[in-house]
Simulated assay, not measured.
Amino acid sequence: MNTLHGKTLFITGASRGIGLAIALRAARDGANVAIAAKSTVPNPKLPGTIHSAAAAVDAAGGKGLAIKCDIREEAEVQAAVAQTVATFGGIDILVNNASAIWLRGALDTPMKRFDLMSQVNARGSFLCAQVCLPHLLQASNPHILTLAPPPSLDPKWWAPHTGYTLAKMGMSFVTLGLAAEFGAQGVAINALWPRTIIATDALNMIPGIDLARCRKPEIVADAAHAVLTRSARGFSGRFLLDEDMLREAGVSDFSAYAVDATKTPLADLFLE
């Protein structure tokens, strides 16, 4: 099985960046994609809305469904999942892509930023999984894929931005726990992380990054496709890297994914 044709994906934060790239890769297979995000009107600093993303899914050969959803709000997530099921008849795949970032030290982290990160990243991933799981358990090859790094207790990843690392590792530990709870029931619950920094709008939050040394979101989308087309049973609780998944799929040349193929790509956060 190497296609997502006819599968229904619920992707959070999919109006732009990696989430949108994953949506479009699935759309090329003929998948149904619920775009669950907050962006309903264009923002000059952050291009892309749920409506433009859904239209792009349609244009790529899939069926897009634009849903305004703040994953911090339980009722909104429940309504979004219900709308997806009513439209497409079920949910096969949840992609926890939505994430908030603030790379500052403790004294430079306002509590509203800390709260936003913990509510969106760890709590949001748990909530979306909780609401989607009753439908996933009825699917033929169910997956939850969360964009989160391998868990690390190395202080060098905690000292510069404890708030962000806590929130991001929260997504990793949610993956670990849910995989242990539901893996035996045939749900593949895994995390995926880019080996290199990806050129997205989130880079505006990281000062001094050389865009030329980044890769395009499509590398994560192709890796996610390789994960989501795997047989779910017995494939759970793994912390996967995009490059490794593509190497397994037979890719050895990653230059097509480079913003500038002449530059050495930068390693992403939380990786050696």
Rank of each mutant, 00 (worst) to 15 (best):
L176F: 11
L4H: 01
R230H: 10
A37L: 00
L4Q: 01
Y257T: 07
K156E: 15
P155T: 13
S15Q: 11
W158K: 08
L271G: 10
C132L: 02
Q185D: 09
R104M: 10
M169S: 10
G62V: 11
P142T: 01
Q119N: 15
F254G: 11
A258I: 01
E73K: 08
A66G: 09
P150R: 14
L107M: 15
V41G: 02
G186W: 00
D260H: 04
G19P: 08
L228I: 07
R25Y: 08
A129K: 03
A36K: 09
N2W: 09
S152I: 04
L178T: 11
W102H: 15
L211F: 08
M245D: 00
F114E: 12
L145F: 11
I22Y: 05
A14W: 11
D210C: 13
V33I: 15
D92G: 01
F10H: 09
A26R: 14
K156N: 04
W158N: 03
I91S: 10
A80H: 06
A60I: 14
N190D: 08
A66E: 03
V220K: 06
I22E: 04
E76A: 15
L4V: 05
D92R: 04
A79R: 15
R215Q: 15
G163K: 00
P155K: 12
L20R: 15
G64H: 06
K63Q: 13
F88M: 01
T165H: 05
A75K: 10
I101F: 14
R25Q: 15
A167R: 12
E73I: 14
G6F: 01
G124A: 09
Y164G: 06
I219R: 06
A148C: 05
L269M: 13
A80Q: 02
L103V: 04
W193C: 06
A86Q: 12
A122P: 07
R72C: 13
A129N: 06
M171K: 12
P155I: 08
T196P: 00
W193L: 03
L271C: 07
I22Q: 07
R113F: 04
A37T: 03
K263P: 05
V81M: 09
I101L: 15
L147F: 13
A221W: 01
E243S: 09
G237I: 05
A56G: 01
I50A: 10
D108Q: 14
P110M: 11
V77F: 05
S99Q: 11
